[in-house]
Design a protein around this nucleic acid. Sequence first.
RNA 1: GUGGGCGUAGCUCAGCUGGUUAGAGCACCAGGUUGUGGCCCUGGGGGUCGCCGGUUCAAGUCCGGUCGUCCACCCCA
Length: 386
Amino acid sequence: MIKALRGMKDILDPKFLKIFDTAREVAQSYGFSYIETPILEETKLFKRSVGESSDIVNKEMYEFIDKGGNDVCLRPEGTAGVVRSYIEHKFDRLETPKRFWYFGPMFRYERPQKGRLREFHQFGIESFKEASIYEDINIISLAADIFDKLGIKYTLKINSLGCNECMPSYKEKLTEFLNENKDKLCEDCQRRITQNPIRTLDCKNESCQKILKDAPKITDNLCENCKSDFEELKKGLDNLGIKYEVDKHLVRGLDYYTKTTFEFISDEIGAQSAIAGGGRYDKLVEMLGGKPTPAVGFAIGIERIMDLVKEDEERSGIYMGAMIKEAIPFIQKEARKLRKNQKVYVEVKPKSLKAHLKAADKGNFKKALIVGEDELKEGKFFEKEL
RNA sequence: GUGGGCGUAGCUCAGCUGGUUAGAGCACCAGGUUGUGGCCCUGGGGGUCGCCGGUUCAAGUCCGGUCGUCCACCCCA
């Protein structure tokens, strides 16, 4: 038997569509426009944006040489492609902001576990050309609306990584501190010093945490602008009634993030608890060859929230069935009329009345319309509310 | 890449220290007097016991390998 590849799943759960529909509705209600970029891109794109030091680029990409000799890979995340498209269409030369939403599969060659697949789906938002902190709030509000609409409980964590002005100097100070304490840190943290020093702040190792509590704090190092923006962000979320926690250890794993970072967490889904993550990435457009353009966005992991969405169990629609073969054309014709304003399912195999009612019940329909010999003669239905 | 659990019917699993035709519940299908579902009863279909090799008179059961799956680490949505 041929099976789906490791870490790849067929999607049969109707909740998947429900999530898609909800996310799309919310994004459109905010006035965002749809974008879908190719699933296959030049490998370079991700090396430059996500960062060569990241695990994603380092060991998780589905990378290969195509028949034309191009080094390509399946996209491991959504932002890079949207930014590439933004620049390619010269939107960076306009002053008008561009706001997009997208939805599609992403690929990472990892060991699968709960909340982690090799092919997974993300709904994402990217907003370009708007440097205002109010846009960050706008974006967070959009994400919160999607979760609220889906009935998903979450904890929102926010942090600021600082900008071009203050981040590099903080990184230096931290690296210096880490190097001084290098021999006391765990193996992972020692590796992190060169790869992504800020990640050490997040280490789960207790002995590391003891040492790191004396490490320079990111919030103490923010420049005036970043500091006031972060204050404004908190006020803005208060204003909208969106609850949050400040998490000084919140670091995004991708190199392109700056200033605001945020994560929506659920405590009901195991170790992979981040259901959405995002933030500002003011340097990325420039890094990929565009004009300097501020940008902010986020992505939701669809598979991670599947279990958090409640199933619709209400009966709906009509079940139509025939008890004799001759009645099938009749119900097909009637079904077309009825479908103008409701869901109508037609069973094309003749069955006993009992069997039809049972099927209508199992299918969670609200009403059953059955046609037998008598009904066919009179052009009527046997009608039953379920 | 590292560590641990698990692979027996569509699903959830049972199968003691190896012994004849491999079981249960749920699901599915058909009946319970001819055309009224959800409950109940009866019957039925469905399994190369993940795969390969080894030990043995005999393996679902023991051993090795392999693949898959789940959970965790790393990392991330």
